[in-house]
């Protein structure tokens, strides 16, 4: 399998992670890029994240919910309101909402999905793989 992977050039998918925890962004970037399937951009606040999203049009955005100054939901609204970024799939990262509570909030967040921190790498990759465009 590895032999074929060497022959066929892999088209890397771009993932943008917007999270105020710099160390978390650092390790997610390391882990995803280690797989050789992803190129990861990082932003530590909402405005920078929106700027990167418009500029680089990533294939998926991992978006922390609770951030100072601009929350993840406000960032998501801004991205949905921009023609360049409105169709980029978003996965919310949350340390507070529990799995059982997602059902009542999915509609309010326009059907977006959640990853609950802390998250293991294989689960993270599985969720990204399922949602990425």
């Amino acid at each position: 399998m590895d032999f074929f992977k060497k022959l066929v050039p892999v088209t890397k998918k771009t993932v943008l992670i917007i999270d105020d925890e710099e160390d978390f962004c650092h390790f997610v970037k390391l882990n995803l890029e280690e797989t050789k399937y992803f190129e990861v951009l990082t932003a530590y606040n909402g405005p920078d994240g929106i700027d990167l999203a418009i500029r680089y049009q990533p294939d998926l955005i991992l978006l922390d919910i609770i951030m100072p100054n601009m929350t993840g939901t406000e960032v998501a609204e801004a991205l949905r309101g921009n023609k360049a970024t409105k169709d980029i799939p978003i996965i919310f990262l949350t340390a507070i909402v529990k799995r059982g509570e997602v059902g009542s909030t999915e509609y309010q967040f326009g059907g977006n999905f959640f990853i609950f921190k802390p998250v293991k790498l294989d689960e993270l990759i599985h969720e990204i793989g399922a949602k990425i465009r």
Binding site: E21, D23, F24, F27, V28, L30, N31, E34, I66, A95, I96, K117, P118, V119, K120, L121
Partner: peptide
């Protein structure tokens, strides 16, 4: 509880991701 969860789960998330890299 909500405040503690947020403050503790974030460092835990960093530890888990860091350990994942070390495992590889």
């Amino acid at each position: 509880a909500a405040g503690v969860a947020h403050e503790v789960k974030n460092p835990l998330a960093i530890i888990v991701q860091g350990v994942e890299f070390l495992k590889t």
